[in-house]
Write a protein that binds this DNA or RNA. Sequence first.
DNA 1: GCGCTGACGGGCA
DNA 2: GTGCCCGCCAGCG
Length: 117
Amino acid sequence: MAASDSMFTHIRATIRKIPRGKVATYGDVAYAAGFPGAARQVVWALQGTSGLLPWQRVVGAGGKILLPGVKGAEQRFLLQAEGVAFSGLRVNMKQHRYAWPMLRRRKPQRTRRTRRK
DNA sequence: GCGCTGACGGGCA
DNA sequence: GTGCCCGCCAGCG
């Protein structure tokens, strides 16, 4: 893709690849799109395209539904309708996490934060 | 022009 | 298992 394509283009394309009955985390989407660690950008991409792509298939780390209020309930409902199994308020990632095909996983070397706490 | 926000993730104490 | 922090980048006040 040309540089003129915004990162959202990649993110949206990535989200659209999630098949029915599967889910992916924000981090996975960002990672698969080529932006490791840019989970927030996934949020932005979803906000501008809600309704145009399977936003319900994107959940937080561990399969947690992060949307507040009725939106969260709606997401859970839609996923269940697709056959996604839930473990309480979490998606059963073990069974429904989407295994990105041909995903060139770059090494997350940026893990050297070593910040003080 | 500057800074904060946002449906977050991941690592460390 | 819990809590805190920093980093991603685009949009908007």
